Simulated assay, not measured.
Amino acid sequence: MSQKRFSPAAGPSQRQLRVGELIRRTLSDVLNRGEIHDPDLNAMPITVGEVSCSPDLKVCTVYVMPLMGSGPVEEAIKALARNKGELRRRVGAELTLKYAPDLRFRPDETFDRLDETRRLFSDPSVQRDIGADGAADEDEGGEG
């Protein structure tokens, strides 16, 4: 019988979440202190929003965004990709993992989704629906 090694529907394991958070903190510290000798990278403050790891912890996707729009996200990703080897070495030295994970940098779109959610909640039809649900809950709570 064959068994699947990874179940994509299950979500990340506790180990994946813990290692991802440790890598996020390590990268944030390295970038904050300016330990990488690249003037383009040190010129822009970069926020590391999230790190998601593959189940075998060999590949990590790092979601980044230049702080307060200090530069285009594409330039930040290019600068990080140029220094991927050095960043990977720093992560490997800091963590006690069997393998230093391969780092892949992607734009962090969390803030865009947050703005879209706010826009949806401010829509008058959504406000009307929320108000109707709140009135129904008060009626149910008052009986009894």
Rank of each mutant, 00 (worst) to 15 (best):
Q3T: 14
Q3K: 14
Q3L: 15
K4S: 03
F6H: 15
S7C: 04
P8V: 04
A9Q: 08
A9R: 02
A9L: 14
A10Y: 02
A10S: 02
Q14K: 13
Q14H: 13
Q14V: 15
R15E: 02
Q16Y: 11
V19T: 10
E21R: 15
L22D: 14
I23S: 06
R25L: 08
L27R: 15
L27H: 08
D29G: 03
D29R: 10
V30Q: 03
V30G: 02
L31G: 10
N32Y: 14
R33S: 06
E35A: 01
I36N: 11
I36L: 09
H37F: 11
H37Y: 03
D38S: 05
P39Q: 02
M44K: 11
M44L: 14
P45K: 09
P45R: 02
T47E: 15
V48A: 04
G49W: 11
G49K: 01
E50F: 14
S52N: 10
S52L: 10
S54W: 07
P55H: 06
L57F: 11
C60G: 11
C60A: 15
Y63V: 04
P66K: 06
L67K: 00
L67I: 13
M68R: 01
G69D: 00
G71T: 09
P72I: 10
E74S: 11
A76F: 11
A76H: 12
K78Q: 10
K78C: 01
A79P: 12
A81P: 09
A81L: 12
A81E: 12
N83K: 06
E86P: 06
E86Y: 10
L87M: 03
R88L: 03
R89D: 03
G92C: 01
E94Y: 04
L95A: 05
L95I: 07
T96P: 11
T96Q: 04
T96C: 14
T96E: 07
L97V: 03
K98Q: 05
Y99T: 07
D102C: 05
D102T: 10
L103Q: 01
R104G: 10
R106S: 07
F111D: 15
L114Y: 08
L114W: 07
T117H: 15
R118C: 14
R119S: 12
R119I: 07
S122Q: 14
D123S: 03
D123Y: 00
P124W: 07
S125W: 06
S125D: 12
V126G: 06
V126K: 08
R128S: 09
G131H: 07
G131C: 04
A132I: 12
A132C: 05
A132K: 10
D137L: 05
E138N: 11
D139C: 09
D139R: 11
E140K: 03
G141D: 14
E143Y: 09
